[in-house]
Design a protein around this nucleic acid. Structure first.
Lengths: 156, 156
DNA sequence: ACTGAAATTATATCGCA
DNA sequence: TGCGATATAATTTCAGT
C-alpha cells in the first residue's frame, strides 16, 4: 500500500461539499453550489482539487445485502501456522466472495476477516469448506454480528 | 432495524448496472446504457426499480482518511458489566467520532467496534479517555489493523 | 420492458475579476 | 479562488410498441 503524505488543507466549504457527497455521491454539483452559496464552477474546481489530493478516493453505491437474502455478518480471527506465508493465505481469501474485509492485525490472530453470508448455515459452510481449507489455517474464532449499530466514515 | 423481506429478482443487466455503480456511483446512466446495450431510459427505469426495492440503499463518496493523517485502524472488543444496558453504551459510542462501526456480537464481548485514529497515541487517548469513560465498560481488547488487504461489498 | 424524442438540468471549460 | 457565459452532455419524462 502506498503511503500518502500530501499536505492537504480543506476549509469549511470543502467540508460541506464532502459531507454532502458522503451522504449522496450523486448529488448534483449545482445543488451543492446553491446550498453552500458559491457557483457551480467553483464547486467543480474544488472537487477536482479534492480528487487530485486523493482525499476523495472514489464513490460507490451502497448495496443492502439483506434484500438479496444476505443477513449474517461475522468476524473471524484466523490463526495461521508460523510456517505459512500470510500473503498466500490472503490470496486464497480473495477467492472467497463472502470475505468482504481482511486485515493483518496485532494480537493473537494473524489475520482478521469480516464475512457476509446468507444465514448461519451458509456461514458454517464457508468456515468449514472454504476458510478451513486454506493451507496453514489452524484455528479460527468466530463472532457473529447480531446487529450493527454504527456505520460511518471519518468525521469531516 | 427493519426486516427486509422483499422478493427481489435481478437479471444480468441489473447486475451489470450494479457492478458499474459499485465501482463509480457517478458513472453516467448514458455511459452504462452504451456498455450494456440498452437505452438510457431503460437504465433509468431499472435504477428506479432497484432503488424502490431498497437493494440500492444509497451512495457515498469514499474518503481516504490517510490523506488527513488518519492512518490507524483498530478493532476493539468491549466487555460490559451485566447491569449496564447495551443501548446506553452504544449511545455514548455514537458521540465518539473515531468509532466508525459498532456491533452487538456473540461471544465474549458485548460490543465490538472499529475505530479510526490518527496514530497510536490518538488511539490510546480514545481508548483511555473516551471508551473507558463509558459507564459499564469494564475491559477492552484491542487489535490494531496493520494493513487492510481486502475491502469490498457483496458480490453481485 | 424497451425505445426515441423532447424538455429540463447538469457538467465542464473558458477568459476575466 | 471565484465568477458568468457557453458548449456539450446527462437526466427525466412520456407516448408509443
Amino acid at each position: 500500500m502506498k503511503i500518502v503524505n500530501q499536505k492537504v488543507t480543506i476549509d469549511g466549504i470543502d467540508k460541506k461539499i464532502l459531507r454532502m457527497l458522503m451522504e449522496d455521491a450523486r448529488k448534483p454539483i449545482l445543488e451543492i453550489a446553491r446550498k453552500v452559496g458559491i457557483s457551480g464552477a467553483a464547486i467543480h474546481q474544488r472537487l477536482r482539487k479534492l480528487e487530485k489530493s486523493k482525499l476523495i478516493a472514489g464513490s460507490k453505491i451502497t448495496i443492502n445485502p439483506k434484500v438479496l437474502g444476505y443477513s449474517t455478518v461475522a468476524f473471524i480471527g484466523v490463526f495461521l501456522d508460523k510456517a505459512v506465508s500470510n500473503p498466500a493465505a490472503v490470496r486464497q481469501l480473495k477467492d472467497i466472495p463472502e470475505v468482504i474485509e481482511c486485515h493483518y492485525t496485532t494480537g493473537n490472530w494473524s489475520i482478521f476477516i469480516k464475512i457476509l453470508c446468507k444465514d448461519n448455515e451458509h456461514l458454517m459452510e464457508v468456515l468449514n469448506k472454504d476458510i478451513q481449507a486454506i493451507p496453514g489455517v489452524s484455528r479460527t474464532e468466530t463472532f457473529i454480528s447480531l446487529d450493527q449499530q454504527i456505520e460511518r466514515q471519518l468525521k469531516i
